[in-house]
Design a protein around this nucleic acid. Structure first.
Lengths: 336, 336
DNA sequence: TTGTAAGCGTTATCAA
DNA sequence: TTGATAACGCTTACAA
């Protein structure tokens, strides 16, 4: 492993000069610079980032904690954009997968210890249900690690990048009404996350002069979205008169809903139009291909990265804080 | 940020003694040890890993390169198991997402540079179609970075963890035959990856005394598996007599296949049984829920991590090399 | 335009 | 049982 010292010897100059030549700062004679660069290339020099981090106190490492229930394409697209943006800025992203069992306090502690032990320049949280986001954020801030949360559903009192789901639901409902549906139901899900979607439905229904039809299946909400979608379908089919369209909380829930309709021989979209939310891959692969609302994943990932870079560089906080929100996009397929 | 020096001052001992107490090596008086540990806790000491890496030459960082086309639950389950195993062993995983455009040479170069710049203790490759795995492996080995490839479909001449797909296909075909299907077809995909599945089909068909029916849709293979599944369905339906079952190359391909069957009103599994491969989430969410072959994702991730740990520690290479292969598991649902 | 040298926090050798 | 000290590779204040 070639170090500055080796290059200095090879080029017959001092370490300081090598440093200047490589960093291209200060005065270096053009001839010296050439010589140094040649030596560096010949010895295939690569700076030792541990040494640099030690000296400068900047690890150029960024921790990313991701819930184990979030190993899907939505989060990964965010993560990929996040990582690429930071890599381009000279940072490296250290990923930590959250505890396999939700709410495992000990494992969360270990994870945090592993993260903080690396003295990350910043950290990002990709939350999941049951992840103690607020606690984690507090610990990070206690260690003076700037952080950001991607798409949280509760207010965690920290900078975050959000997705405007209400608008997406609003557009989807309007779209179905525009195709002649007059009884558009809404299938809700996790009550903790309801505020992100329900108001969009309500606004659309109000503007359209329709009657709101909420489909809460009997019983408490359970986190298995597919099963919930199935149970909701039973409740939906029991309604009289039967609605002719439904906006679901998520694509997965729509899958459970669709399954029951298929089993009963109810045609989609002829008898019931179904719209999902998320635009997961299943949405294009299921039958019929699902009209749904696409999340701006890459933008969210990039924005999170940029917020962290700004905080690391100590740029002044903008008036409204760093948080941003991005719009969704309606993707029309064959289920409506 | 407390350092050894701070603790030494607080405890009234030398840096070396603090080091001994914390590492619990060599002779330290019990009373001194207690005092040091107390001081460390009080100052909330955390070792500076950059300094340690600089001194020991061991970064305890592991690079993981993942293709951008692989941002799905299959790869992420592998990645999560990989990361957890390594974290437990004191390593941290640095993830790099491959170029968004396949075959972007410049971007691959940058990526490799970013990776090698961190002097990783080892590296893992999660390949995708079009990723220059062999080249990358060569570069890594040139930099003396031990590496492993997860589930490659070509022989990359380096240690890898593989999945025994043939056995999975074999079992699925036998399962369909066991349910009274006598004309079981096989829907192939990417010819580069065919060898991992086709022989399993051929073996099952031979043992069962059935006639092999290969369904190659007309034209060259194109990487859009869903579209390929659709085109294959057209070819399948043109066969006379029509087969009563099909084993597909992948779940996604099965989705395309199913879509066409649904459009034609052909009942699954009554008229045609369909089996997939991968056990993606779509397999349980589609209609009807898909019989498929589950990959041992977590095991593959763990095994890859353990191979790297063994190589890092310089353990002697076993007789047959480090590579391992894991069996799949047939998951029976309603499509067969 | 170039060089000397201190110091980041850790590890580990050697001496006390 | 403990301590003084050098060294890892880099950055940078200061000197030449």
């Amino acid at each position: 492993m070639a170090s500055l010292k080796h290059i200095a010897q090879a080029a017959g100059v001092s370490v300081r000069t090598v440093n200047r030549a490589l960093k291209n700062d200060g005065y270096v004679a053009e001839s010296t610079r050439k010589r140094v660069l040649r030596a560096a290339r010949r010895l295939s020099y690569r700076p030792n980032l541990s040494a640099r981090a030690l000296k400068t106190g900047q690890s150029h490492e960024i921790g990313a904690v991701i819930g184990s229930a979030s190993l899907d394409e939505l989060h990964m697209e965010k993560m990929a954009a996040f990582e690429r943006t930071l890599r381009a800025a000279g940072y490296c992203v250290h990923v930590l997968f959250g505890p396999s069992r939700v709410g495992d306090k000990a494992e969360v502690g270990d994870l945090l210890e592993a993260l903080l032990g690396r003295r990350p320049a910043a950290a990002a949280l990709f939350p999941q249900s049951g992840m103690p986001v607020a606690d984690t954020v507090r610990d990070l801030q206690g260690a003076r690690v700037p952080c950001v949360v991607l798409d949280p559903w509760e207010d965690v009192g920290v900078d975050s990048v959000r997705i405007d789901r209400q608008q997406g639901v609003y557009e989807a409902v309007k779209h179905m009404a525009g195709r002649g549906r007059h009884r558009v139901a809404f299938l809700g899900g996790d009550p903790d996350k309801a505020c992100a979607r329900l108001p969009g439905y309500q606004r659309a229904v109000r503007e359209l002069g329709l009657t709101p039809i909420l489909v809460p299946p009997p019983g408490e909400y359970t986190p298995d979205e597919y099963a919930w979608g199935r149970r909701s379908a039973e409740a939906f089919l029991a309604l009289s008169p039967r609605p002719d369209a439904i906006q679901t909380f998520s694509d997965v829930m729509a899958m459970g809903f669709l399954a029951v309709l298929h089993e009963r021989g109810i045609r989609v979209p002829e008898e019931v139009a179904v719209a999902g939310f998320d635009d997961r891959r299943i949405a294009s692969f299921c039958w019929p291909p699902l009209t749904t609302v696409r999340q701006p994943n890459a933008k969210v990932g990039e924005a999170a990265a940029e917020i962290l870079l700004a905080k690391i560089e100590g740029r002044p906080t903008p008036a409204g804080g760093w948080s941003r929100s991005f719009p969704t996009r309606l993707v029309i397929r064959e289920s409506t």
